[in-house]
Simulated assay, not measured.
Amino acid sequence: MITELATLYVKPNRQKQFETDFEIAGQYISSIDGYISHSLQKCVEQDDKYILLVSWRSLDDHTIGFRKSEVYLKWKELLHHYYDPFPVVEHFETIIENKK
């Protein structure tokens, strides 16, 4: 499994609309083969800062399956105008995981 992490900075006074549109955009990303789950988390200390965590079966499921799909164009149209600066997206694999 691969975790995609994107730090998102949303333009001032656009947070509520961004959150509404992000809820809609969830249908697009979740329709892709290899998608497992996603969460959007808002920073407590900084009102314009969010992180997006997406679990994918493989890196290619994100970088090829999603990013080269028609639904990515819908995702992009709905969300990309909110960001300033444009997010850096990184991918991680679990090395150690502990759960209670």
Rank of each mutant, 00 (worst) to 15 (best):
D33G: 10
L78D: 08
D60K: 13
N98D: 06
D84N: 12
S58I: 03
L52H: 07
S30E: 14
W56Y: 05
D61M: 08
M1V: 05
S37Q: 12
E93I: 11
D84T: 05
I2T: 06
E77W: 00
Q46N: 13
S58A: 04
H62P: 03
V10A: 11
N98C: 11
P12E: 07
H80L: 04
H91K: 11
K74Q: 14
T63A: 07
T63Q: 13
E77K: 13
V44W: 00
R57Q: 15
I51G: 10
F86W: 03
I29N: 08
V88P: 04
I36R: 14
S37T: 04
C43K: 03
S39V: 15
L52Q: 12
L52C: 02
K76T: 15
K99I: 09
K11L: 00
C43W: 01
F66Q: 00
D84C: 10
K99M: 13
R67H: 03
F66D: 00
V71L: 07
S58P: 04
Q41P: 06
M1I: 07
I96K: 07
R57D: 05
V88Q: 10
W56M: 00
Q27E: 10
K76S: 12
E45N: 15
V10L: 05
Y82T: 06
S39Q: 14
S39C: 06
V10N: 13
R14H: 06
D60V: 05
Y82G: 09
K99Y: 02
L53W: 09
S69K: 03
A6V: 13
F92C: 06
L53Q: 08
S69L: 08
R67W: 05
E4M: 11
V88I: 10
F18G: 02
K42F: 02
S37V: 01
R67K: 14
T63P: 04
V89S: 11
V44P: 00
F18V: 02
S37F: 10
F22I: 04
Q46I: 15
Y35F: 14
L5A: 01
D48C: 07
Q17D: 11
